[in-house]
């Protein structure tokens, strides 16, 4: 009986702990560094970019229609901002068992086919996904390097036009980086957008 109570207690606490871990980071909070395997087999972290001023961390995946719709725009972000000190780091948050099309070798194939100019990282055990509280794909975080460490400046959507049909779109991500470059705090630090939920193994 004692053993049973201990097991239940541990179980309850681990569930509570797991939930606490999944709260989405907000602007002003520290962006945890990570060390994840890239599609080229090498490990990538913030420290891989000693000269960067910040990072565009985007949780995205192979198959989600919203991720597919934004794929080219993510490539453009990297092309435009890497040279300005803000490289894109893409992380696949999906569990490869829950979403077979998001396996590491399929990530490698996609990155090669589409000539990703940025690293596309595999998050073993969804650890970084939970640290950041990424909920859906794509889910974008803009991080700046400061004296106090790596700080989240913005969380949310890339722009307000997932379908790509609006004539006057608001480019949230670009606006945030423009503000940071002129040493200002971004006007908008959080947006919401529909997306595919992060795929997890079914709970036993």
């Amino acid at each position: 009986m004692q053993k049973f109570i201990t097991t239940v207690t541990v179980l309850v606490f681990s569930i509570l702990f797991a939930q606490a871990q999944t709260a989405t980071l907000k602007a002003g909070q520290t962006a945890p560094d990570f060390k994840l395997k890239n599609v080229d087999g090498k490990e990538v972290s913030f420290e891989s970019y000693p000269k960067a001023k910040g990072f565009i961390v985007v949780f995205t995946c192979n198959t989600c229609p919203y991720a597919v719709a934004y794929e080219q725009r993510i490539i453009e972000l990297d092309k435009k901002f890497k040279s300005q000190g803000y490289p894109v780091i893409a992380i696949n948050p999906n569990d490869p068992e829950a979403s077979k099309a998001d396996s590491f070798d399929k990530m490698q194939k996609l990155a090669k086919d589409k000539k990703y100019p940025f690293p596309y990282l595999f998050d073993q055990g969804q650890v970084v996904t939970d640290q950041y509280g990424a909920k859906h794909t794509p889910h974008l975080y803009i991080v700046s390097k400061t004296a106090k460490g790596n700080i989240v400046e913005y969380v949310g959507a890339i722009d307000n036009d997932p379908e790509g049909t609006k004539t006057e779109k608001i480019k949230y991500a670009e606006d945030v980086i423009a503000s940071l470059k002129s040493n200002q705090k971004p006007a908008i630090t959080e947006t919401k957008e529909i997306g595919c939920t992060v795929k997890r193994k079914a709970k036993a």
């Binding site: 989405t24 909920k135 859906h136 889910h139 959507a157 307000n160 947006t191 919401k192 957008e193 529909i194 997306g195 595919c196 939920t197 992060v198």
Partner: peptide, 17 residues
């Protein structure tokens, strides 16, 4: 505008379905 309607359904909704 997802910025408005997502919060109007529920403040805790991140937008994933």
């Amino acid at each position: 505008s997802p910025q408005e309607y997502i919060d109007r359904i529920d403040k805790n909704w991140s937008g994933s379905i």
